[in-house]
Design a protein around this nucleic acid. Structure first.
Lengths: 266, 266
DNA sequence: AGACACGTTGACGCTACGACAAGGTCAAAC
DNA sequence: GTTTGACCTTGTCGTAGCGTCAACGTGTCT
């Protein structure tokens, strides 16, 4: 047989056969005077074996190693490992399909399903209402959702549960509007203290304690004096990028809220 | 934020961020005077979205197209197609695991499970017995098994069934030995006609008719005169490679067998 | 002033081949 | 005898999604 006949017999291209020669997966056969490779029946069998195993997902390097030595235990080990790998792939695909389904189910197509779609739905309603601050909150959550581990997501979803109650939307809307109204305002604005008080009152105790216990995660400019590591946020500075989109009055509101929560938890 | 902070926040490398810039997946942000890229919070959100979707298995090209336009229906279509693709992958992996299991179950690790392992087991016993001809038969079957479509494999397995009966092994062993003994013998050897007769007698009618109906698949040198397309085997010449490993006496045996079967089916 | 961590662009490496290019070989057709 | 067309040869570039250098500029700390 010449290379084209061999390839057609096994159902591959001649390029594939030469590639296997190059990798040492298949021995180079003898050549005729014109340089053509001549194959025998045994070569076809060897090629078919390689193809069969390669199609199962073994890499060609693994295959060469596995077929190189005496073909008994090494190949068995490789196949066992392959099966474990295939099992992992199955599991990974199952999870991917779950997440795709969650994305398709949630009406908007932004990642950030937050376990249950309730929170995402509420924030979507708020941001379509035109609130800049609600939009930022939603962005924060979607970011956290892609970055955090599953257990972190679950914990966050639990903390968010109180905000998914039926009347929570209307009250949140009012507060978000008052926050939005402070865009461009100075930190001394008279609307700041009452808004901070109203906001802090809406935080359930579990969330307040979660915040107070992690004060060192809070950006320095929002942190009450004398708490945690005084120097840096340790967060790499992304919070500064976040705060730079807020007005001084809005920042002051959040600072006051955190101070209030800390006092409450004391 | 600088690029390293952004990357750390979202959990990727800076190389990845620059790669996304290069592909147009993420807009190039403004630069500081020293040439450093400066990112805002919105960039982190955009990057997180890309990562989330990319990790689901979307290609970066698809993602760019899907995120480019108005983000509603195009992304939905892409996700639906992705889910279909994931389903196909699941199915493919399921089949692969079945075949890996079949390989691990069959004691030898040669591909060629033939649906049920019976036939493979018999041929393994024969070839470990040292028979060259049985070895070639086994190679033929493994080759067919990797090359043929599933329905072809099923048909072949059905044809092979009679040979998996308990006493078939012993009788086959004797015949294979007589064939092996003809290695190096001339075509006029007196042992040829009786062996061909005994062999032909062992072929059940279904297999005989399957052979006679496909006489044009049989190499020309084995074909009885005046049957099928007289010119070429049409098989690309691999049968010649196969026959070249046989002695003239062995070839003559097979030719006689086929002739006998043809007469029987007439 | 040096060390060190960060940033910049550019280029090569990885898998398993597909798709060329630029030629040599062989059987059949004119 | 020559041309055509189907083969064969080696070699190189391209693919997806970055990792991993190289070679160099910047900013901060000691």
């Amino acid at each position: 047989m010449r290379i084209g006949e061999l390839a057609a017999l096994v159902g591959v291209t001649t390029r594939t056969v030469r590639h296997y020669h190059h990798l040492g997966l298949l021995p180079e056969p003898v050549r005729r005077a014109n340089g053509y490779r001549v194959y025998g029946f045994a070569d076809a069998v060897a090629l078919a074996r390689v193809r069969h195993l390669a199609e199962l997902g073994l890499s060609l390097d693994e295959l060469r190693d596995a077929l190189a030595d005496d073909e008994g235990r090494e190949l068995r080990e490789v196949l066992l490992e392959l099966d474990a790998d295939l099992a992992r792939q199955q599991e990974a695909i199952r999870i991917k399909r779950q997440r795709v389904a969650a994305l398709l189910e949630g009406a908007d197509l932004r990642p950030g399903s937050m376990g249950s779609a309730d929170m995402a739905a509420m924030l979507r309603d708020l941001s379509t209402g035109g609130s800049r601050i609600a939009d930022m909150d939603r962005d924060l959550l979607t970011l956290f959702d892609t970055v955090a581990e599953p257990e972190g997501r679950a914990r966050m979803a639990a903390l968010m549960r109180p905000f998914t109650e039926p009347d929570a939307l209307a009250r949140a809307q009012a507060l978000y509007r008052r926050l939005d109204d402070l865009a461009g305002a100075a930190s001394g604005d008279p609307r700041v203290p009452p808004l901070a008080a109203d906001l802090a009152a809406r935080f359930p105790d579990e969330m307040a304690s979660a915040i107070v216990e992690n004060l060192d995660q809070v950006p320095a400019r929002l942190r009450p004096p004398g708490s945690g590591s005084g120097t840096g946020a340790g967060d790499g500075g992304w919070t500064e990028a976040l705060l730079s989109e807020l007005s001084p009055a809005q920042i002051e509101v959040f600072r006051l809220v955190i101070e209030t929560l800390k006092d409450r938890m004391r």
